[in-house]
Design a protein around this nucleic acid. Structure first.
Lengths: 195, 195
DNA sequence: CTCCAAAAACTACTCCAGTTGCATTTGTGA
DNA sequence: TCACAAATGCAACTGGAGTAGTTTTTGGAG
């Protein structure tokens, strides 16, 4: 007895084809240009099947989001919190600049704003990201660089928030200096013991 | 000779009716439920007219956004930067909690993520907000509470960013304490001279 | 190898956002 | 007051997103 289908089965092939097509379409046309019909055609899967298993464009994105959540990302470990934090914020910034990652990541944020399921998926995604990133703060506390009263996750949030704010709320450009400044600000607040 | 139509003319009546209907629909159904047809029916204006003058749902929202930009909002003046900043951030937080303002404001953010014109309108909106809010920082500098090297607008951005980040990116709840902490963090960074 | 339940494909629809061409109304300037 | 240009109203249409019912394929269990 088994509780999971074979990885090479038809369903698995369909799932992979649709996921790959979704990402490719997102890169080419962005979130506003993403349609179930296009994904179906590109993947070679019939559109009724896509509707039955994913339900909607937001469902496709939620699915991609769950995949992205489990992928670990390269947390820096330079020896100092300052450069670690800067590294993380720059990673966020350059991620949205990237011609492949950018449209996909932006789509995640956009979709979550319109669909509760996508919002939950994005919430979990960021919870995982925060947990991973907070490691640089925990290390800093161990090294005595920061007081042990600080909340590591909160430091991460405050560090990356200005980048997201500029990109998705105020719609201002984000320079390398802007990102560094955001990281430095979070660090200064942490040192002052307010985070 | 005149370069503007009479305020009581038919066009002006249509414009006002559509604007009011847009806001009412946003409050009742939110951004995802906003359709040109519904706005047309509620306003008593034919849908063709709405399409011709506003073009799309995002056009309706951009229009509402331009109106909101010019409305000044109550910047606190308590005598200390700390409570002024906290007041501003709480104003943001409670604004999105408000059953009337919340859906409208959220719609602005959501629409700007999908339509370049709405994005530009929102950019201008926030530029105006920053400029107004920065007054509390400028006063603090004059009083000697903050070093005069700090960028007032940047302090505001860093102060409010975590609230927007939680609401629209990470999709986490935002408590009163969270808002205060964000304001305090920005202030600590400003005092340290990194903003 | 055979059979069967589940999943996918296919066909043919419905429904609604958005468009087009034309008729009608309106307010404004002469 | 009157005539005209601009704006609105109207009705009919187009196209694509999403659905329903049915048939076909597939992979695995016995």
């Amino acid at each position: 007895m088994e509780f999971r289908k074979r990885p090479g089965g038809r369903s698995a092939r369909v799932r992979d084809a649709v996921r790959q097509a979704t990402l490719a379409e997102l890169v080419e046309r962005g979130y506003t240009g993403l349609t179930v019909d296009n994904v179906a055609e590109r993947s070679g899967v019939h559109k009724t099947t896509v509707y039955r298993r994913w339900g909607s464009v937001e469902g496709l994105i939620s699915d991609a989001l769950e995949l992205a959540r489990d992928e670990p990302w390269p947390i820096p470990d330079t020896g100092s919190v300052e450069s670690d934090l800067r590294g993380i914020v720059q990673l966020v910034r350059t991620g949205f600049d990237d011609p492949e990652l950018g449209p996909v990541s932006s789509a995640f944020v956009a979709a979550a704003m319109q669909d509760p399921a996508a919002a939950r998926a994005l919430h979990d995604f960021f919870a995982a990201r925060h947990e991973q990133s907070a490691e640089v703060v925990r290390r800093a506390i161990e090294r005595g660089e920061l007081p042990d009263v600080v909340d590591p996750n909160e430091v991460i949030r405050v560090a990356v928030a200005p980048v997201y704010y500029r990109l998705f709320v105020a719609h201002e450009p984000v320079s390398e200096d802007d990102a560094d400044r955001a990281a430095d600000a979070a660090l200064a607040a942490a040192r002052a013991g307010v985070l």
